[in-house]
Design a protein around this nucleic acid. Structure first.
Lengths: 123, 123
DNA sequence: TCAGTATATATGGATATACGCATACATGCC
DNA sequence: GGCATGTATGCGTATATCCATATATACTGA
């Protein structure tokens, strides 16, 4: 299947690739959190989802490699956000999952994490 | 993650499972064809997508095992269709992919396959 | 019953994927 | 520069996933 990164309204990523990427629990949960809350720091995602740091970093790396997320370093902290030009169907799907388990709980835990990290990984 | 089959408006299938399932090219292409054309016979899917019969059967089996499709045997022929009570976001995603490659080509080839199979695997 | 056809499943093998743990790399402060 | 902290990556291992090929199973008609 053809795969091209086109600088247009929507990023063209192989849909099979997208489905496969999000077919992992950690990655799907991270994607839903980013969709709902916007740009997030690795440490916040790690805490909210409750996985080890290397595991989260590795998974975020996968999302980055495929072009699903954009990153920004701020001192020691790296922030990840879904690219705004992703296909609409993907955004809609992530939005639809927001209120379901375990994504809703992740969101709650994220708010705690954000409060704890407030003065450290500033937004 | 909790997985339950609830006889309600929408089937509750673990979204991670869904994404993972559709993260395979053959299965995603089959799902899009079924979404667009409705109930299809294994032979039609096999021809349209251009894979071997055992391969198609295996993949359809995966979809069946998870509860994404319903099957109906008609003599020698087995028809598969997406369950109507799938989550809306999934239907929307499949619909959005319909006009893209390679799904559009699959659809064209399916029409030929349906014409060829008309008198055999009757609908 | 037997032969033909459609479909599902078994088998062995190759490849992909995920993980924990360790560590390399990046940044900031004293 | 040394130390602390956040993040990314290496490494070995276990498991999952996919495939081609062969064959079992199901159905039909003569």
């Amino acid at each position: 299947m053809m795969e091209a990164i086109a600088p247009s309204t929507e990023t063209t990523i192989d849909p099979v690739r997208v489905f496969r990427l999000l077919g992992d629990e950690t990655r799907l949960r991270a994607a839903v959190l980013m969709h709902r809350h916007g740009e997030l720091c690795v440490c916040e995602l790690t805490d909210a989802i409750g996985v080890s740091q290397p595991k989260m970093s590795r998974h975020l790396g996968h999302l980055r490699d495929v072009g699903l997320v954009a990153t920004r370093r701020s001192g020691q902290w790296v922030h990840y956000a879904l690219r705004p030009d992703l296909p609409a169907w993907l955004g809609d799907a992530l939005a639809a999952l927001t209120g379901e388990p375990p994504f809703a709980d992740d969101s709650t835990r994220l708010r705690s994490a954000m409060a704890r990290h407030r003065d450290q990984c500033e937004q």
